[in-house]
Design a protein around this nucleic acid. Structure first.
Length: 454
RNA sequence: GUGGUUGUAGCUCAGUUGGUUAGAGUGCUGGAUUGUGGUUCCAGAGGUCGUGGGUUCGAUUCCCAUCAUCCACCCCA
C-alpha cells in the first residue's frame, strides 16, 4: 500500500499535551462552578437516532447534521429508487443515526426517557463534544466541546438569575472580560405584534439578529425581501435604536408594547431578573440587547449570549429558556432553561489574550537523572517518597547521555533536576539543580523536600 | 451551499522574468564539553516545490483541473 499523508478530517484537531493542560484548565474551572451551584453531571452517546435530532434546529441545522451510514447491506434495504429519491430523503433511508449537534436536545430526550429516576427541578451539567457539518473557519470547528448547564422542570426566574451568576463566575475565574447580552423571545414576539406582523416573527428575529454585523440598511433589505412592508419596517427602526440604561429601555418598551400581552410579559420577566441584581453584585456587564435573537428555534423566553470584549470571534456562551422541548418526546408542560459554554472559542480567546496562568503548564516538578542500573535502584525509593508527598516526579527511563537528559528536563520545563551518581551515593547526598536559577546544591532528602515546597 | 486566499524541509517562510546543484530561520542528530539544560561555535540528516494533466527541448515557476488550507458570507459555540 502506498504511504499516505497523515491527516485528520476537516475541521477536527489533535491536542498536544500543552494544549490539553490549558483545555483542562477551562473544563475544570467551568465544572467547578457548575458543582458549586448544585448541578450534577450526565453523559449521553455521541450518536443519537436521527428522529431525535431532526427538526429541532431549523432547516439550516438539519443540513449541518452528520449522519451515520447504516451497517451491513444498507442499499438493498432502502425502499426508494436511488436515482429518483432526493439526496436528503434518500439519506434518511440509509442512515438512522447521527452525531449529536448540541447537548440540549439529547438532554431533553434523556429527561423524558428517564422520567422515573429524576426528581424535578432537575439540574444537570454535561461537558461533551458535538459535531456540525459546517465549513470550518475562524472560531468554527466541526468537532468542538460544549459545556452545558440546564435546569428543567422549573418556571422560576431564579434559574435565569442563577445562570447569569454562573456565567459571571466562570468568566471571572478565567479572567475574561465579557459582556452578557440578554433578551426575551416574548419581547420579540411582542414587537412583531406591535408592528402588525406577528406571523413573520421568525423572519424578523433572524434578520435583526444580524443588526450589529451588517447594519440597519441591509437588515431592512432582508426584511423587505421576506415580505414585510416598509411601514412595519419604519416602526421597527426606533425600537432597536433605543438608547440608555437597561431601565430606560424597559420603560420605553412598556409603552411600545402596551397592546401586546406577550410582549409585556417578556418585559416583566426581564425586569424581574434585573431587579435581583440590584442587591447581587455582578462582575460582568449585563446588557439588555433587543437585537439579540438567536437562531435555534426551540427558545421561548429568556435568551442569552456572551461575547468577549475586544476579541473578534463569535459568541463564547449562549442559551435560553425553552418551554416545550420535551413536548416532542411526549412530555408536555415542562419548562427548562440552560446555557452552553463554547470551550474551544474560550480557548481561542484566552490564547489570543495570553491569559492562561503560567503555573498550570508545569507537570513534573522533579526529575532524577539516570546514571545506570545501580543508581536507578538507589533513586527509585526516593522518587516514590516524593510522590507520596504529592510531588510529581520521574526518573529518566534510561542512562542516556547527561546532555540528552538535561535537554529533556529543559524542554519539559521541569524546575528541579536531581543527580545521584556514585559520588553522591557514597557521600549520602543529592545534587539538586535549580533549572531556573542554574544553581546547584548538595542536599539531603529533607532539604530537597523543603526546597521544593518552599 | 456561495465568493476569495494560500499550498516549497518537522515548523515559520524566502526564491525561481521557465534552465543543469532548491534557500534562510527555527527544530532535530552529533561534536567542541566522555557528570550538566537554557547562551556560543562547528558539522550532519531532512524536499515527489500539494496532486493529476497540458504547453515546452526543458516546468517547482506558465495554463487547466483537482484536493487541501485559511478567510468572508449563510448559520452558529
Amino acid at each position: 500500500m502506498a504511504v499516505q499523508k497523515p491527516s485528520v478530517p476537516k475541521g477536527t484537531r489533535d491536542f498536544s499535551p500543552t494544549e490539553m493542560v490549558k483545555r483542562n484548565f477551562i473544563f475544570d474551572t467551568i465544572k467547578g462552578v457548575f458543582k458549586l451551584f448544585g448541578y450534577l453531571p450526565i453523559e449521553t452517546p455521541a450518536m443519537e437516532n436521527l428522529t431525535t435530532l431532526l427538526g429541532k434546529y431549523g432547516e439550516e441545522g438539519d443540513k449541518l447534521l452528520f449522519k451515520v451510514l447504516n451497517s451491513g447491506d444498507y442499499l438493498s434495504k432502502a425502499k426508494s429508487d436511488l436515482s429518483k429519491a432526493g439526496s436528503s430523503s434518500f439519506a434518511l433511508e440509509i442512515c438512522e443515526k447521527g452525531l449529536r449537534y448540541d447537548l440540549t436536545v439529547p438532554f431533553a430526550r434523556f429527561v423524558v426517557q428517564h422520567l422515573n429516576d429524576i426528581t424535578f427541578p432537575f439540574k444537570r451539567y454535561q461537558i461533551q463534544p458535538v459535531w456540525r457539518a459546517d465549513k470550518p473557519q475562524k472560531g468554527r470547528y466541526r468537532e468542538f466541546y460544549q459545556c452545558d448547564v440546564d435546569v428543567i422542570g422549573s418556571n422560576s426566574l431564579l434559574n435565569e438569575v442563577e445562570l447569569i451568576q454562573i456565567i459571571d463566575q466562570v468568566f471571572q475565574k478565567l479572567a475574561i472580560n465579557a459582556v452578557i447580552k440578554m433578551n426575551n423571545r416574548k419581547i420579540l414576539s411582542g414587537i412583531a405584534e406591535a408592528i402588525g406582523q406577528p406571523e413573520k416573527f421568525m423572519d424578523i428575529t433572524i434578520a435583526i439578529d444580524k443588526l450589529d454585523k451588517i447594519g440597519i440598511e441591509k437588515v431592512n433589505k432582508e426584511l423587505l425581501s421576506k415580505g414585510i412592508d416598509s411601514g412595519a419596517i419604519d416602526k421597527l427602526k426606533p425600537i432597536f435604536e433605543l438608547k440608555g440604561s437597561n431601565q430606560d429601555k424597559l420603560i420605553s418598551l412598556t409603552t411600545i408594547l402596551k397592546d401586546s400581552e406577550i410582549g409585556l410579559d417578556g418585559v416583566k420577566e426581564v425586569e424581574m431578573v434585573f431587579n435581583y441584581f440590584d442587591s447581587l453584585p455582578l462582575n460582568t456587564e449585563l446588557e439588555l440587547d433587543l437585537t439579540l435573537a438567536r437562531g435555534l428555534n426551540y427558545y421561548t423566553g429568556a435568551i442569552f449570549e456572551v461575547k468577549a470584549k475586544g476579541i473578534q470571534i463569535g459568541s463564547i456562551c449562549g442559551g435560553g429558556r425553552y418551554d416545550d422541548l420535551t413536548g416532542v418526546f411526549g412530555l408536555k408542560d415542562v419548562s427548562g432553561v440552560g446555557i452552553s459554554f463554547g470551550a474551544d472559542r474560550i480557548y481561542d480567546v484566552m490564547e489570543q489574550l495570553n491569559i492562561f496562568p503560567d503555573e498550570i503548564v508545569a507537570s513534573t516538578k522533579v526529575m532524577f537523572v539516570n546514571f545506570g542500573e545501580k543508581e536507578e535502584k538507589y533513586c527509585l525509593p526516593l522518587v516514590q517518597k516524593l510522590r507520596e508527598n504529592g510531588i510529581s516526579s520521574e526518573i529518566y527511563p534510561s542512562s542516556a547521555k547527561m546532555k540528552k537528559q538535561m535537554t529533556y528536563a529543559n524542554n519539559k520545563n521541569i524546575p528541579y533536576v536531581v543527580m545521584v551518581g556514585e559520588n553522591e551515593i557514597e557521600k549520602g547526598i543529592l545534587s539538586v539543580k535549580d533549572m531556573m536559577k542554574g544553581e546547584q546544591l548538595e542536599l539531603n532528602f529533607e532539604g530537597l523536600l523543603q526546597k521544593i515546597t518552599s
